[in-house]
Amino acid sequence: MSSTFDTVSGIISETCDIEKDTIKADSHVIDDLGIDSLDFLDVVFAVDKAFGIKIPHEKWTEEINEGRASAEDYFILSNLCTRIDELVAEKAA
C-alpha cells in the first residue's frame, strides 16, 4: 500500500498541482485536497495508465449517488489505494 500511496500521491501532486507533503493517507480527495470531478478524471486516467488497470469510476459514482457506498469508501486516499491494490491483484489473478 505504501508504494501505491507514493505513486498515487505523486500523480495527484503532479496532476492537480498540490504539494506532495500535504497529501496524507487519510486525506479526502475532494474535501481535503479540493480536487473536483474533472481533475479527478485526470487522476483516474493517470492511475489507470500507471497501474495498467481500469478504475470502475462510473460504477463507484453510481454506488455513491444511490447511497450503496459512502464517498469515503473511495475518496479517502488510503481506501482509494486499497481499491487500486485490489484491482491490480484481480488483474494479475
Binding site: 483516474v44 486516467f45 489507470d48 470502475p56 469510476h57 462510473e58 460504477k59
Partner: peptide, 9 residues
C-alpha cells in the same frame, strides 16, 4: 488513447 470507465481519452 484510453477507454476508461465513464470517460475516454
Amino acid at each position: 488513447e484510453h477507454a476508461g470507465s465513464g470517460y475516454a481519452v
